[in-house]
Amino acid sequence: MIIDAHVHAGEYYRHYSAAFAQQMTATTVMRPEELSAPETKLMAEMDSAGVDRVFLIAFDVRRVEGFSVPNEFVAELCARHPERLTGFVSVDAGTPGAAARLRHAITGLGLRGLKTAPCYLHMSPADRRWYDVYETALELGIPVLMHTGYTPSRNADARFFSPLLVEQVAKDFPDLTVILAHLGTPWTRPCVDLLARHPNLYADLSIFGSYQSPTTVAEALSHARDSGVLDRLLWGTDFPFASMTGSVARMAELTRDPGLWPPGHDPLTPQEYRALMGGTAAQLITPTAFSPTHPPNR
């Protein structure tokens, strides 16, 4: 099974603002209008790339950016494709009632993970306003996917880009499963080292795996393998910011071409590839995610 662990829901003309889309695509070959993932486009991309399931993400940045991709919108898509879409709620701890909104989205809407966007919301991931949200996520037994690393959004606060800000969260919530998005790009080595210090931390390769050179990706995977955390990395794309089809092909290269790897390092083994491309992600959403047959952990 191939699982894309980082996919955005939302449509340019319904959700994202024109200014945000322009900023996020300014350094790419994409047009702002292409920052859109309507249902038909998403399912077609999954089929073309051979992707079996995705983690589909809501995005609540209304307080700062003036827009959101609502939890309800994501839940509706997931309800139509339960065998292929796993929804992640998004909440803003800078607004009252965030923990209650998270609980409702999991227990009422059927979503199965949480996405946070600290730098977009001008908050550290270790800001104490997040802590009742984390406690609720821990109680519900769901993973928390946190944005870490750079973003071209001009409204984002660069003080909160570094993945090292998550270290205090890992210490305070050692049983909370946290996924650091984008491998903390450009702080990829410190991100891997952070995973090595905290066994509850994972990271996805979205954007990093799609846009960095294969040799750069192989170097990061080599460091993760040497650090004993390769089995805690998840493949992801950040679609529609990156192509699933292109990224799958790039990852397959890393199983075949030893010339991409640093001296003394072998390509991905079949077992490593299967874990990276979906095996690890599957373990994070079953069986602990809330459902009628799997009640929340207490």
Rank of each mutant, 00 (worst) to 15 (best):
residue 215 T to V: 08
residue 186 P to N: 12
residue 149 G to Y: 08
residue 164 L to V: 15
residue 132 D to A: 11
residue 161 F to I: 05
residue 188 T to I: 08
residue 184 G to P: 10
residue 181 A to M: 01
residue 194 L to P: 05
residue 185 T to M: 08
residue 224 A to P: 14
residue 202 Y to E: 00
residue 246 G to T: 04
residue 241 F to V: 13
residue 148 T to S: 10
residue 149 G to F: 09
residue 242 A to H: 02
residue 234 L to D: 08
residue 153 S to I: 03
residue 211 Y to K: 09
residue 149 G to W: 07
residue 191 C to P: 02
residue 130 W to S: 05
residue 141 G to Q: 10
residue 213 S to V: 10
residue 232 R to V: 13
residue 190 P to F: 09
residue 185 T to A: 08
residue 229 V to E: 00
residue 244 M to N: 11
residue 146 M to F: 03
residue 233 L to P: 14
residue 222 S to H: 11
residue 233 L to A: 09
residue 132 D to H: 08
residue 155 N to T: 12
residue 157 D to I: 01
residue 171 K to Y: 13
residue 246 G to R: 02
residue 247 S to M: 14
residue 162 S to N: 12
residue 217 V to Q: 06
residue 174 P to N: 14
residue 137 A to R: 13
residue 192 V to R: 01
residue 243 S to A: 12
residue 148 T to F: 00
residue 226 D to P: 00
residue 145 L to M: 11
residue 234 L to A: 04
residue 137 A to L: 12
residue 211 Y to P: 01
residue 187 W to Q: 10
residue 179 I to V: 15
residue 201 L to P: 00
residue 205 L to H: 03
residue 130 W to L: 04
residue 147 H to W: 07
residue 157 D to V: 01
residue 134 Y to D: 15
residue 176 L to Q: 14
residue 195 L to R: 03
residue 162 S to A: 13
residue 242 A to V: 07
residue 237 T to G: 02
residue 221 L to V: 10
residue 176 L to F: 08
residue 135 E to F: 01
residue 229 V to K: 03
residue 134 Y to W: 12
residue 198 H to E: 07
residue 229 V to N: 03
residue 200 N to E: 12
residue 152 P to W: 02
residue 180 L to K: 07
residue 175 D to Q: 12
residue 183 L to S: 12
residue 187 W to V: 08
residue 245 T to Q: 09
residue 181 A to V: 03
residue 145 L to Y: 03
residue 179 I to R: 01
residue 199 P to S: 14
residue 151 T to G: 02
residue 225 R to M: 01
residue 173 F to Q: 11
residue 204 D to S: 00
residue 139 E to F: 01
residue 173 F to M: 11
residue 164 L to S: 15
residue 138 L to P: 02
residue 220 A to G: 06
residue 134 Y to Q: 11
residue 226 D to M: 03
residue 207 I to V: 14
residue 166 V to Y: 11
residue 151 T to V: 13
residue 146 M to C: 07
residue 158 A to Y: 09
residue 214 P to A: 06
residue 151 T to I: 09
residue 128 R to L: 05
residue 220 A to P: 04
residue 137 A to G: 05
residue 161 F to E: 11
residue 130 W to C: 05
residue 130 W to Q: 07
residue 135 E to C: 07
residue 167 E to R: 14
residue 205 L to A: 04
residue 174 P to D: 14
residue 138 L to F: 00
residue 207 I to S: 02
residue 139 E to H: 15
residue 202 Y to L: 02
residue 162 S to Y: 02
residue 222 S to E: 12
residue 142 I to Q: 00
residue 246 G to I: 01
residue 153 S to L: 07
residue 195 L to I: 08
residue 155 N to L: 15
residue 164 L to A: 15
residue 227 S to Q: 13
residue 170 A to M: 06
residue 129 R to M: 12
residue 179 I to F: 03
residue 232 R to C: 11
residue 131 Y to L: 06
residue 196 A to G: 08
residue 152 P to G: 00
residue 244 M to K: 03
residue 187 W to Y: 14
residue 191 C to N: 12
residue 208 F to N: 10
residue 239 F to S: 03
residue 237 T to I: 04
residue 247 S to L: 11
residue 163 P to E: 06
residue 176 L to R: 07
residue 151 T to P: 02
residue 170 A to S: 12
residue 199 P to M: 00
residue 162 S to P: 05
residue 185 T to R: 04
residue 178 V to G: 02
residue 231 D to E: 13
residue 214 P to L: 08
